[in-house]
Write a protein that binds this DNA or RNA. Structure first.
Lengths: 216, 216, 216, 216
DNA sequence: CATGAATGAGACTTCATTCAT
DNA sequence: TATGAATGAAGTCTCATTCAT
């Protein structure tokens, strides 16, 4: 699953660069194909999705597909990149050094939840990566965990977080966000995402145990 | 992803409709096929797995597959049931009412992590459900979340947990366990699962914020 | 299609004689299988009929089939022989030299119609022969046509029929009977077979033209 | 079996749903496939015919078959339609109200016999319908019988035929034509079809009985 | 004789990709 | 660039027949 942290290290894979559309018309066709692919892959999954299905949704001829992408894998990859960059764009938060670290985390969570609710197909698409590009699948998770871990270390340095946090904490947090995004973003419609973000944030902040010697 | 909580109505037999083997020899063959399927699906994923691949691994003729299962979907389902029942079996914990709730949770986590480390293919198999049997995929998550939520309510009743816990907390906890199982169980080999279980437990118990007015 | 005239030239094909059941129990099982085959072939046709279907209907194990028949073709052949002999038996008419020839024909028609109505599956089974045993299919027709032609010649000799009748007349008559058997025997339930036999007989006798110089 | 009377709503195009070829090249390929199917089905019958056999005869790749037909059933249906329309085309007779009814019948018979002799495979193909599309099989017969019956009624009205003719007469006549077409058209080569048509016509006109009070 | 598991050739069908127009 | 026909490898599934118990 995807969570909000990613940003692109390698801006543009060099694969099939010669297929980049040169005309405006071409650019529109490529765009239609990617949008159609999002629907097709989201609905059927990578393997049951068909090029035919994509071109039918896009309203182009079958042959045109290969003008822009040289394989099913390639358009899938392009789609994932496209989604990823949208997540990043949505979740990018300006630096405000004064702002408490956990407040900032809350906002990241909220934006991510909102993104998942708006792009409900995202989990079904990203999950396909496990088999389509296993390397990328694992790398993506590791990259995100790494980012979270860096923020945790930053929080420790600021004196806002416990000093014993490890990489495993980062993975646990990522799992939390990811599952909430699935349940309340991708699957949900009615729940208040603000409340979900609050819950995640409070769990993160204080855990679930009844504070000793404090009234509930 | 799967976490430890599920339990099942029909615990063990592969559920092949009217194809239940009637002899001992048949039961062995069906078993060989399911075990082979675990490898094949784990390695290639549902769609790239082939019946041929399964029977080759099982050492049976192609046709024998259809003596016990009527489709790839069916053996997949049987395999998932089989794995699920194994998880349940492994994770079942005897009731000890006196034991503190969060200690009990820690043991559940630990057992689940150990299971994932021992059956590394499990995530790759379970994740396939999203497309192979989407209903089951979602139901499974919902069932597990429900179980966790019930335990949370129990903890509240005992006065061990904060009283404002919601279903969303359950989903967050499930996400945490699931991701740790993936990273340190399924993908990992060397990390101490005891330490991971401790980390998860402490995050759950106290969160990550530096306790106010306490020295770090 | 089959019409009433056949009788066996070669009483028992020598194929698989060693499979003739020796015990009473065996004879019953073979009988059950043939009866089941009539249903199965009648319902599905030769190719879509399955040995499994036959044994299921017969209530025997799959393997038992091959105790009595060595192939699907063989039981089909046996079934056709069985039906044929039933037709012959039913239609056999004792010689009454005094009886007018066309009266005798009428009775043959009637008996055949009655047989088809009682064994509605017969057309669907016999028609299969065209592809299963093309030789037999054609031979059967030729044999029947020959029989009819012989009766026509007999009628001519008796001075009851026109003297210009040919083999083609025999084929035409066979076609007539066969189609009426299909429509009013095999497909029909309510029509009076007596009336059908009358119609066939009168058509044969006088044709359909309005007799010249005769009141209608 | 088929006889000459049918007519169709959509006369000629292979009725392949949404697979209609859109280019001239496509139309040629579809045509090649149907022609090949006539040979393949005629030689082997529906079930033993294989798509491979069809495409091999047509000189196309296996996959091309599915560009135009989505199943063996579908091309079979298209073939039957195609043959049917050819029969209709061949047998269509211009209206000549003055012409005696039984003369007209003779010409219909003759044309049909000629068609069967030219398209010898037709019986083997049409007979398959009984199992491939049983509905169509029966409907076809009923439609033809109905047409014949209407012509009989017309003949009665003109005062050329006996007034007691029934639907059963129509079925009998159809059976006659059909069987003669099989024997002398489809199976035969040498017999004079003119003579056969004469025989059928005279049988129809006067029956086979020796006219009373007339010298033979 | 009866049983039911095992076998594997062979069929249909899909669909990513290439190619001709 | 766009179109849609052509290709064929690969996969799933059936079922007559054989075999071990």
């Amino acid at each position: 699953m995807l969570v909000a942290e990613i940003d692109e290290t390698e801006p543009n894979e060099p694969s099939a660069d010669d297929k980049m559309p040169r005309t405006e018309r071409g650019r529109r066709t490529a765009r239609k194909l990617i949008d159609a692919a999002a629907l097709e892959f989201g609905e059927h999954g990578f393997h049951d999705a068909s090029i035919t299905g994509i071109t039918r949704r896009a309203g182009t001829a079958l042959g045109s597909f290969y003008t822009y992408f040289s394989s099913k894998e390639e358009i899938f990859h392009a789609l994932v990149e496209d989604l990823t960059s949208k997540v990043v764009e949505t979740s990018a938060i300006e630096d405000e050094p004064a702002r408490p670290m956990l407040d900032r985390e809350r906002e990241i969570s909220l934006r991510y939840l909102a993104f998942a609710r708006e792009h409900k197909e995202i989990y079904r698409i990203i999950d396909q990566c496990e088999f389509v590009e296993p390397e990328g699948f694992r790398n993506r998770y590791e990259l995100i965990a790494q980012r979270i871990f860096e923020r945790l270390q930053d929080g420790i340095a600021r004196g806002e977080l416990r000093s014993d946090l490890t990489e495993a904490h980062a993975w646990a947090i990522m799992g939390m966000s990811s599952m909430l995004g699935l349940r309340y973003g991708s699957w949900g419609n009615d729940e208040s995402l603000d409340e979900i973000a609050d819950i995640a944030n409070s769990l993160l902040r204080d855990g679930i145990a009844l504070p000793q010697g404090k009234a509930d």
